[in-house]
Design a binder for these strands. Sequence first.
DNA 1: CAAATAGTGTCTCTAAGACAATATCAC
DNA 2: GTGATATTGTCTTAGAGACACTATTTG
Lengths: 269, 269
Amino acid sequence: MTEQEYLQAYDITAYDRPSLTADIAIFAIRRFEPDSYRHEPRRALSLLLVRRGGHPYKDHWALPGGFVKPTETLEACAMREVEEETGVTPSALMLVGDYSRPGRDPRGWIISQLFASVIPDENVPAVGGDDAAEAEWFSVRFDKAADESFVLRLENEQTLISAKLRVLQSRFGRTSLEILDCGGLAFDHAAMIAEALCALREKARDFEIIFDFLPKRFTLTELQRVQETVTDISVLPANFRRKIADLVVPTGETTEGVGHRPATLYERK
Amino acid sequence: MTEQEYLQAYDITAYDRPSLTADIAIFAIRRFEPDSYRHEPRRALSLLLVRRGGHPYKDHWALPGGFVKPTETLEACAMREVEEETGVTPSALMLVGDYSRPGRDPRGWIISQLFASVIPDENVPAVGGDDAAEAEWFSVRFDKAADESFVLRLENEQTLISAKLRVLQSRFGRTSLEILDCGGLAFDHAAMIAEALCALREKARDFEIIFDFLPKRFTLTELQRVQETVTDISVLPANFRRKIADLVVPTGETTEGVGHRPATLYERK
DNA sequence: CAAATAGTGTCTCTAAGACAATATCAC
DNA sequence: GTGATATTGTCTTAGAGACACTATTTG
C-alpha cells in the first residue's frame, strides 16, 4: 500500500475527536480620573469578560473564546477573538495552557487552549467590539487568603465576582490551580483566569510584557506604574529607572501641561 | 428553553472538530563508559524517537505521541505515552506548545500539543517499552549555524539526522521556529524537538529541571554535569556549588571505589 | 512659595564569576 | 608519589535595594 493509497483510505471521522476552542484572557490597565488634573490617576489591572448569551452557563461571565477553524492555527484563532472583542490587534499572545479535564464542559468533550494578551491603555474604552455579546472590563485582584488558598476578585460598577482557588502545582512557569469556589464564573474559567494572571505577573516582573499596556510613547513613571499594577509589587523610582534604562530610548519630547515637572517620553528599544 | 433541554438537543458532531494528539519529547542523559573506571563518563543529552511503522511518513523518525481519549486530560495522555515508551513515570511534564498549522499532517486536520519530560539516568536503557514500535535514543545537538539559522543534529550509532531551522520569535519563554530543512523527520517534528530543547535549556539554567535527570541520590559533580550537558554552558565548580547549596541536602553517605576522592551523596531538598 | 511629579547620586549588601588552594581516594 | 576528582576560600565586579537629594512645572 502506498502512502497515497493510505491517505485516500484514511477516514479521520472514524476516530474520537474533541471540539477545540481557543480562549483568551485580554488584560489592560484602566485609568480612573483623579480629583485634580495634577494628580496621578488610579490604575487597575483589568480583564475583559463576556456574559454568556446562551446555554450552558447562560448569563454567567466567561472568557471570550471560540471554536477553532480548520484553516487557522490556535494562535490565529485567539488573535481573531481579541480583534473581534476589542478591535485591537495585540502585539503578541502568550500561551497559558490547555484545559482538557473530562467533564469540564457539560456539552461534551471540549478542550480549550488558553492564551493571554495585553491591550494598550488608549484602546481600553472600546468595549464590546463588533461582537453582539455583552462584554465588560473587570478590575482583577488575586491574593493569598488566610488559609493557604487564593482569592480571585473580579469587580466593576455592577458586579462583584469572588472565586476561591488552591495551588496544585507550580512548575516550569505554569501554576496549576484547583477551583474551590467558581464564584459564578462559567466552566473552569476561574482557574483559567487565575493561571493567566500568574503567567502575566511572572512576565511583568522581568519587563517582558509591561510595554504592551502602553502606547508607543510613554513616560518612565507610567511604565513603572504598569509594572507595579500588574505585579502588585512597588519599587523605588531610582531602581526601576536603572533596570529599565537599556530597554528604552528617549524621544526628545516631553509631556505638557501636567501641573508639575514634565516627563521625558520614551519608546521601547 | 432550559439548560437541560439545550444540552439534550446539542449535537457536538455538527461542528468541525480536529483530531488532537499529545506528543512528547522524552529527554535523558546517556552516559558512555570511559576508558578507565577512574575517569568521568562522557555524557550526551538524548532524545527518544520512534520510527514510524505506518503511513504517513512511514519509516521516518518521529516524536512519540498519540490521540487523546475522551476520558483523560492532555497531560495524562502524554504521561501515558511516556510510560508506554519507557516504563518510567516522569515526575513532571513541561508544556512546550501547540502545533496547529493547517496542512501540517497529510491525513487532515490534526493538532498536536507538545510536552517535554525527563527520564532519570538509571532507566535510560529501557528502550522500546511495551510498545511494538521501534524506538531509539538519539544524542541531541542544537547550535547556531554560520548564517542566522540553527542546526538540530540527532545522532546515534546507525543514524544521523540534521535539520535546519530559523527563529521566528522568542517571547514569553517560548521560541517559535520555522523549518528550513526537516532532515527527514516526520511532520513538523523538527521544530517541535528544537522548541522543546529550547524550553528545556531555559529551565535547566535556573536549576528547575536538572534533578529529574538523576536518581534520588547524586553527587554535586553529577548534578553540575547534567546542567552543563543540557545547557551547553560550563561553570566553575565553586560557583555551581554555591548556587545549588540551598536546593540540596547531604545524606551522610559517599560514593565508593571511584579511584579518587569520594563524593558526598545529596538529595533534592 | 506650595504641591506635585521627574530625575540623579551614592551607600550598602548580596550574588556571580574567576582563580587559587587544599583534601582524599586507588594504585 | 601520581592521577583523578572533591571541596573550600577569597578577590573582584556587577547589580539590587534603600535613601537622600535636586529639578521643573502650575497656580
